[in-house]
């Protein structure tokens, strides 16, 4: 039999005040513990998200650097080929007179073999 002191009413149940207090403090402690566990889990998840975001940024950076390097090589390649070609090497080795002769060389004057 339970007398509720705060309102002076009776209930047909057997729990004593001490038992109820124990239940309440156990429930209180459990709620606090669970709240701390959740907070820790949240922080861990938070750290994982940041790590993943940093990884994505790094990958994007590396990808962009590789793309830029490849793109730069592709643009400069034709120029270097033009200057390094055998015709250019030959023309640049000629003296001015020889170059003039090549420039005024008539197609009909090319001997046939």
């Amino acid at each position: 039999m339970k007398d509720l002191e705060y309102t002076n009413r009776r209930l047909p149940y057997g729990e004593s005040d001490e038992q109820v207090d124990q239940l309440v403090s156990a429930a209180t402690a459990h709620a606090i513990e669970q709240s701390h566990r959740r907070a820790t889990a949240w922080h861990q998840r938070h750290r994982l998200v940041w790590a993943a975001a940093a990884m994505v940024v790094i990958l994007l950076g590396v990808g962009a650097a590789l793309f830029y390097a490849e793109h730069k090589t592709a643009v400069t390649e034709p120029d270097s080929e033009a200057y390094a070609g055998p015709v250019d090497t030959f023309l640049s080795s000629l003296t001015d007179d020889e170059a003039m002769q090549v420039a005024y060389y008539e197609i009909d004057e090319i001997p046939e073999y």
Partner: peptide, 24 residues
């Protein structure tokens, strides 16, 4: 967090019994 936990524990000490009997 500590202050919140202490406040909560105090609140439950005050209202815990009444809430338990209400639920019961």
């Amino acid at each position: 967090v500590e202050r919140r936990d202490q406040g909560f524990a105090l609140l439950m000490r005050h209202y815990g019994r009444a809430l338990y009997w209400h639920i019961r």
